[in-house]
């Protein structure tokens, strides 16, 4: 059974694409057959972070409009052959995404035997974001620890509870997971950011992962390698925990409190 997972947020720039890339890669590392789709028509990003931007021939819109087959458009990851990327079109406009077209692509992925389809949503609550969530079975709601991001996530949770196919068909509701990213415990302590507790109280959904603010994220994006593939990076480890938890493993939260730097680590330049 194929599971469709949307990565969504409402607010822009909070880490949806970063999360989609690492989440999809983490599932693939564990042997799952995964496709990750960029729904952000007009703003290609996912292929950059996945390091396949120079191999894009056909995109999501080409498939929807019948200009290419799904197989032609799926880009196989260099490291994990069971991981596939469907890039967004940079040249078409958003109107090119149609409910029927998206449904057809998802159904084709089902019949190809994919375990997971990860839908990287664009920001906002318009067409692209709506279509990215409409067919989902589960949702990763990506939030930064600040008021406007949390509010937008709350709004998106309202849409997940009302404007999806599962709701229209009276099926079990979408399973919602909170992903709190760019978390900086030191700034939380100073009162400059909302705490994990503040955010979970407002959003009232279970936490799947807390990803620390980390310079490794930008570096890995620039290098075209999702941060989860860097075992030494704090954010990579946090994403690794997140994927394990998603698959049912019990892993304690890390990187949520200020780490005391010991004397030795200082001397050793750690």
């Amino acid at each position: 059974m194929t599971k469709i997972v949307v990565v969504t947020s409402g607010k822009g720039g909070v880490g949806k694409t970063t999360t989609s890339a690492s989440f999809a890669t983490g599932l693939a590392q564990r042997g799952k057959k995964v496709a990750v789709i960029d729904f952000d028509v007009g703003l290609r990003n996912l292929d950059l972070i996945m390091g396949c931007e120079r191999r894009v021939v056909f995109d999501f819109v080409n498939v929807i409009q019948g200009e290419a087959s799904l197989r032609q458009a799926l880009i196989k990851d260099k490291t994990f052959p069971n991981l596939h990327i469907l890039a967004a079109s940079q040249t078409r406009d958003k109107e090119a995404l149609t409910p029927e077209g998206v449904e057809k692509v998802l159904n084709d992925l089902r019949s190809e035997g994919f375990d997971y389809v990860v839908c990287d949503s664009p920001a906002g609550i318009e067409r692209g974001a709506h279509l990215a969530m409409y067919f989902a079975d589960e949702a990763l709601v990506v939030t930064n620890p600040e008021v406007s991001s949390v509010r937008d996530s709350d709004r998106v949770l309202g849409l997940l509870a009302s404007k999806t196919r599962r709701v229209e068909r009276n099926e079990a509701r979408i399973k919602e997971h909170l992903v709190l990213t760019r978390y900086n415990p030191a700034r939380v302590l100073k009162g400059e950011m909302l705490s994990l507790e503040d955010v979970t109280e407002i959003l009232a959904i279970p936490v799947l992962g807390v990803i620390p603010e980390s310079t490794a994220v930008l570096n890995s994006s620039n290098a075209g390698t999702p941060v989860i593939t860097l075992p030494d990076a704090d954010a990579g480890q946090a994403y690794d925990d997140l994927v394990s938890r998603f698959l049912g493993e019990d892993r304690p939260l890390r990187f949520t409190t200020v780490e005391k730097k010991g004397l030795f680590s200082k001397w050793l330049g750690g």
Binding site: I125, R151, D152, D154, R155, L157, G158, L159, A161, S162, A204
Partner: peptide, 8 residues
Amino acid sequence: ADPIRGGQ
């Protein structure tokens, strides 16, 4: 019995 979200 559900939370009422922003926009609802």
